[in-house]
Write a protein that binds this DNA or RNA. Sequence first.
DNA 1: CCATTCAATTAGAATCATTCCAATTCTAAT
DNA 2: ATTAGAATTGGAATGATTCTAATTGAATGG
Lengths: 151, 151
Amino acid sequence: MATPSPRSSPKPSGLDCRLAVLGTDARLTPHRREVFQALAESNDHPTAYDLFAKVKERSPSISLATVYNCLEHLTTHGLIRQVQLERGQSRYCANLHEHVHFHCETCGKVIDAHPAADFDPAKFWNLPAGTKVTRMDIAIHGTCSACTDKS
Amino acid sequence: MATPSPRSSPKPSGLDCRLAVLGTDARLTPHRREVFQALAESNDHPTAYDLFAKVKERSPSISLATVYNCLEHLTTHGLIRQVQLERGQSRYCANLHEHVHFHCETCGKVIDAHPAADFDPAKFWNLPAGTKVTRMDIAIHGTCSACTDKS
DNA sequence: CCATTCAATTAGAATCATTCCAATTCTAAT
DNA sequence: ATTAGAATTGGAATGATTCTAATTGAATGG
């Protein structure tokens, strides 16, 4: 459905801008809003548990299961990205601009790196004809400059 | 150590070519050899459990823990790659040529795609100065041509 | 304004993949 | 043969995520 849901979220606010722009039918309930906000405020790439801890400060009653539900909802509605940098915990990212993740294997830090203006990834890989690309996950592993300096 | 280990594997065979070429000090014990061979023979991207099932046919006594140990050993010695396409199970890949993984979200199939000859990924992303890159994981998600045709 | 309905939320159990651990086995050199 | 060290084992433990069933809450129709 492209029409707005009959049951809209309680209080439209600044965060709904993204909703409106994207034209999704995602409903931003208070919890979803808080999870989204917590993610948007972090420039590291938090795990579900990190976000749980952060949201809990404001809403002590929230459960980890709800955080997972919210993240799932936000991800499938394209409001956030889920990133899988290594085995184990997934990480989340509110930066929807096309970017890649640099992961420092020494300190664990994750840095967003943006592609040069003329970057057109599709033309560099010889995908079979008829293949449709919906998204790309590009993870670059190495050592960040701070860790390189230390060693 | 660059010198060969004092304790070499029992029977040098064709598989050791890779070892020799790569100049690693990995020891290919029978189990490690079998796990490697099972992986090298598959063109899908098997999980640890897939490989466990396959190796079990020849060596019924092998345990899943050993398969994990072998995969860990082979990965850290650069003989195979571990790929993380989505949440959950890791997949493994014996193709060491520079390539990206195309993952069909409909049928789950994973296809290796090789970059065009002039592809130089490093220059497309503006990584901070001093950053050292050791490896890149590039996963492209979408729909393969077979699944596109069906719909 | 109250009842109904449906989704959101919850806690805790269950599952799944992976890792850890302690005991055993194997290999190669002494 | 004996020893030392690594490989292997099974099973327990862990950690992340998902499932389930019950509860809550909001908006709509009566």
